[in-house]
Amino acid sequence: MFRIIHKRQLSDAVFEMGVEAPAVARKARAGQFLILRVDETGERIPLTFSDWSAQEGWVRFIFMRVGATTHKLTHLEVGDELADLVGPLGRPTEVGSGRVAVVGGGVGAAVAYPVARAMCAAGDDVTVILGARNSELLILEDEFRALPLKELIVCTDDGSAGRKGLVTAPLKELCEAGALDHAMAIGPAIMMKFCAATTREFAVPTTVSLNPIMVDGTGMCGACRVSVGGETKFGCVDGPDFDGHAVDFEELMSRQRVYVDDERSADAEYSKGCSCHL
C-alpha cells in the first residue's frame, strides 16, 4: 500500500525516504506530520513531512536512527512497503509573519526546510540558521541554498562547517539588530529551549515545533501532553507548534525519557538479529 519510492542517506544516521501516499500528499502542509508503522508488530511513530507532491502522490520525511523503529526503517529499500502511514496530522505552521528567523538544529533541519519554503512562498523575509554538531551531520544545505532566502547561516559546534558555535549566537545577533518580527525554532528540546530564552529578552515572538511521545496522533490518548502557559495541551492536535516562551521544556524533556530503558532493550533485541553496524 505505502510503497517506498525513494531513499537517500544524508549522514551516518540520517535518511530521507519517499513513500507513495496520494491522499496524504494532497493535504500535506508545512509543519504537519505523519504517523507510520513499519510492520504488523511495529510502534506508531510520528515524523514530519520534509517534502511532498500532490501531483505525483508521494510524501517524504527525514529521520534519524535513534531506536528500534527508526533502525528497522533504515533497512527498508525502494519497492518495500510500510504497514501503515496516516496523515496529515497536527496544525500547519503559520506563515506570513514578515521578517523571520528559522532555526533548524540537527534533524530539525528536515522540518525547517518545508517551513522555510512555505514562508518564502508567502512572501516572508526568511533567514535560516542551520546547526549541527559537525559538518558530517549537517543536512539539506544545498536545498536551503536553492530557496530565495535572505540569508543562510550555518553553525557547527566544532567549526567544521560555517561558524563555530551554537545557533543561539546568530539568533541573538539578529534580535539585537532588531531584524526580526518572528522566530521559529525546530530541533532537540534543549535547543528550542535556549532559542526561546534568547528571543525572550528581545520580546521576539517565537514558535517551537514540539516532539512529545505520541501514540494515535489524533487526540485520543493524551500521551503527547505538554504544558504551555500553565495549561495542558495535546501536542498532536493543538500543536505541534506552540509559543516557545510559554512551553515548559523541563517537563517535555522529562516526558520524552519515560521509556528510555524499554527502548534500549527493544533496539538491543532488534539489533541482535541485524547485521548492520549502524
Binding site: T41, E43, A68, T69, V215, D262, E263, A266, E269
Partner: peptide, 13 residues
C-alpha cells in the same frame, strides 16, 4: 491495540 503486553516482540512499550 499496540500489544505492549508482548513487548519487545511488539515494539510499543
Amino acid at each position: 491495540l499496540m500489544k505492549a503486553y508482548d513487548f519487545p516482540h511488539h515494539d510499543t512499550p
